[in-house]
Design a protein around this nucleic acid. Structure first.
Lengths: 220, 220
DNA sequence: AATAAATAAAGAAAAAAATCTTTATATTAA
DNA sequence: TTAATATAAAGATTTTTTTCTTTATTTATT
């Protein structure tokens, strides 16, 4: 089970990919404060990561640091951004313009993270035709046409769970190659369609579990 | 580095805790469809998990299955919910009633996941005094008073990154023991305060990286 | 009643990731 | 110029997690 896609280009550990944006955020903040060079131990200290872990993660980007000096912060930021593919920007369509969808549309920072939401879709008359910032909410029945015309490759799924599978299939048919899935549904799609799940519930579970454990611990 | 809190009660792997809510969602759906018993291989097949992995995860809850029959679906749902602590419900305060905050307030399903948002806080005159569903948006300057009076232990942080650290400190001072942090900021808080980070950006990074890899792969 | 088949449960092995250790290099200061 | 020091880089070890294997139990079938 579990197809892990062992490819020469896919050898970078997922935990590393997840940590790099955190470094990036911290580095940008440091740059704003006038920092010119920064060492792995400092980054590790600030973000509570093992310094050797930081070194290993940064090594994947190909950026070289210098002993006793650290990394040039400009090079490092540029290196991480290029490595993660954040220098080019994909257009994305979002389906499900409820609260969560609206929240994501209003994350303008996504543009610096490799993609930009250029339109939203829904089926409810209440929201179709409205705007979220400068993003229009269109009816889902024009999704396919627009997606193929504009060659959109990323879809964001923020619909109710009940229609998630159906919508995802439509997305795939319309040429969407990567779906960011915010529903708790395990999507079944043709091979080749990338699905990235962001389950609020998994995070809740970890939080509640930890809290329970701690409160129990304090009791005795 | 990395304090993993080795405690007799904390030996359940985090990946397991994250998978259990996914099983739970699937099981509830199956129950609605009239399923009475279900086997680990079936769950695994549906959710694309290794069947032995499913067995191991479910074993943590203490629920027993029977060979050739599987698990009683009622017992299993109840067992997972109790194990994750979803049977009792914590009150939670949310700070930052923007789009993302509003989206979370409108997730009524959270109640079946162990907590309930009972009030939201902000500092902007535009939102203070308004409502989100049946949740009032109050001014943050009454947070501390209310949190201690109502003994609220969970805080949800959906503010802009710039004020995240400051707000989190105030939360901790008000007696909040667990913070669900949606900002990209690495919070620095007194020991004992649990922080659960949900970084949109990490997920974006994984998605964009996979898409890049695949598009590259298809080119040659 | 006996046998076959399916599957939960427990244990072993493998894989992945994090951590630790060592080495090499560059910078600063004497 | 040399020595001391900080740190990047590479390698080894440990830990964690997943996957594989075996065993035992239970139900269905003959």
């Amino acid at each position: 089970m579990k197809t892990q896609e062992k490819d020469s280009r896919d050898i970078v550990p997922e935990p590393t990919v997840k940590r790099l944006p955190l470094y990036l955020h911290f580095l940008k903040k440091a740059k704003e404060n006038g920092v010119l060079t920064i060492s792995a131990p400092i980054i590790g200290q600030e973000l509570e990561q093992d310094p050797t872990q930081v070194v290993k993660d940064l090594a994947y980007t190909g950026v070289k640091g210098r002993p006793r000096v650290g990394y040039n912060i400009y090079e490092l930021i540029k290196g991480i951004e290029e490595f993660l593919g954040f220098n080019q920007v994909y257009d994305a369509f979002l389906v499900g313009a409820g609260n969560l969808g609206s929240a994501l549309i209003n994350y303008p920072e996504f543009r610096s993270f490799g993609f930009k939401i250029i339109a939203a879709f829904d089926i409810s008359d209440d929201v179709v035709g409205t705007q979220r910032g400068d993003v229009n909410v269109l009816h889902f029945n024009v999704f396919k046409e627009l997606a193929s015309k504009l060659k959109v490759r990323i879809g964001i799924l923020t619909t109710p769970a009940k229609v998630a599978q159906e919508v995802a299939e439509q997305m795939a048919k319309a040429g969407i190659r990567a779906i960011w899935n915010f529903t708790p549904v395990k999507l079944k799609l043709p091979e080749g369609v990338i699905v990235q799940n962001t389950s609020m519930y998994s995070n809740v579970a970890v939080l509640v579990m930890k809290l329970n454990n701690q409160l129990k611990k304090n009791k005795d």
